[in-house]
Design a protein around this nucleic acid. Structure first.
Lengths: 213, 213
DNA sequence: ATATGTTTTAAACGATCGTTTGAAACTGGA
DNA sequence: TCCAGTTTCAAACGATCGTTTAAAACATAT
């Protein structure tokens, strides 16, 4: 019998602890000693299982991202053949749900990486985010009409996605209370309605502006 | 004559270099050696002039914040007696201008601090941001009408300010191209118009929803 | 039970961190 | 010129960083 018996293997415990710590403190702010200490593993376990701290960082993000993507689909459960308005609401709802969802580790790591790039993740993140952006832009292109330029679409995309991105920014920044409203999971549907109504009205207004030249 | 003659004193050079480096890499990612090396100062100069790395961090943020606040007033140059629609456009324009403005050091430090709190700045930042939030919420309360709840106002504030906050997030994250449209200073007015039209339409829509119960 | 391959462990490595020290260099007024 | 005060400097401090090493502990199949 071992001295300590865990329900999961060392490798998985390291991934779990590392993703949480990297999300909380960023890559440079976390030491291997801290990770292995909290995971009740030996200091050398990181280099044994992952080769280096950098590899562990990349694996930790992939770990967290795959989990939330299977848990919360980005289309919000709205099929492709539904009207654009509904599909937009699905995207907003999904984003909101991710913003509220538990720890939101994958997002916090991404945020740290964007604020303070190590360069270790940006290729992986970009490959993951770009398809989502493209899908949202397709919906917006449909809503804005054929006269909309690339810039029109991108500016509207910014207005649509930034609210829940910003919500995510503050959700776990407990030391910065008051900078954004706190939203719990009960309010998912009404807040999704709020954001969708706001967004659709804004988009219609932009479409009219475009039409007038 | 000294070996190297600089146009500014050591203390000011340290502040300049430190604020830029802290904005780029965050508190933990910057070493005193790196700061003093780039500022062409001795390693001990930080502790002589500021007492510690932490104090230098705080002074660097204050330094950067005071500069941009005097340069770009948060009301966008719109007087208090103007209609709420115009005052809202002033806020949006000011935010956009800060997002585009040169280095945006004060924001990048704040972003790092929110993503990865050291706890050293949050009181200072909160004291600075709260009045700005209050002013924006007053405008929104006027636009949304008397039936608007606190939550209505906060959600609309989120939709109004998050686009240019998000724009700022990406402006200097050159390693993450394509995640947001790149906007240069020539487009300040048209983009401000876009955001304002979008926001006012969204706010009107929310006001109607409230009216209907 | 023995051999083989995997996983964990303690210890040590060199490098770099933030900080301290005390002397040297510089400054401006008497 | 001399002196007090300020600023800069190289050197060293203890601590911690990520990584390496080699032996110990473990698992598993023959």
């Amino acid at each position: 019998m071992t001295q300590e018996s865990h329900t999961t293997g060392t490798r998985e415990r390291l991934l779990e602890v590392a993703s949480e710590l990297f999300a909380e403190k960023g890559y440079a702010g976390v030491s291997i000693s801290e990770i292995t200490g909290m995971a009740e593993a030996n200091k050398a376990a990181v280099n044994y299982h992952f080769g280096s701290k950098e590899k562990l960082y990349q694996e930790a993000w992939r770990h967290a991202h795959e989990r939330v993507t299977t848990l919360i689909p980005p289309d919000g459960g709205v099929a492709d053949d539904q009207p654009a308005e509904l599909r937009l609401r699905g995207r907003i709802r999904s984003g909101l749900q991710r913003a509220m969802h538990g720890d939101a580790i994958e997002f916090r790591i991404m945020r740290n990486e964007m604020a303070n790039p190590t360069g270790l993740l940006h290729q992986v993140i970009e490959d993951t985010i770009e398809p989502l952006r493209q899908a949202t832009q397709n919906i917006l292109a449909e809503l804005l009409g054929p006269k909309a330029t690339e810039m029109d679409i991108q500016l509207c995309e910014l207005c649509v996605v930034s609210p829940w991105l910003h919500l995510k920014h503050h959700k776990h920044a407990s030391k910065h209370k008051g900078l954004a409203p706190v939203i719990n999971e009960d309010m998912l549907e009404p807040v999704a309605d709020h954001f969708t109504a706001y967004a659709l009205a804004g988009i219609r207004q932009i479409r009219e502006r475009i039409g007038q030249g």
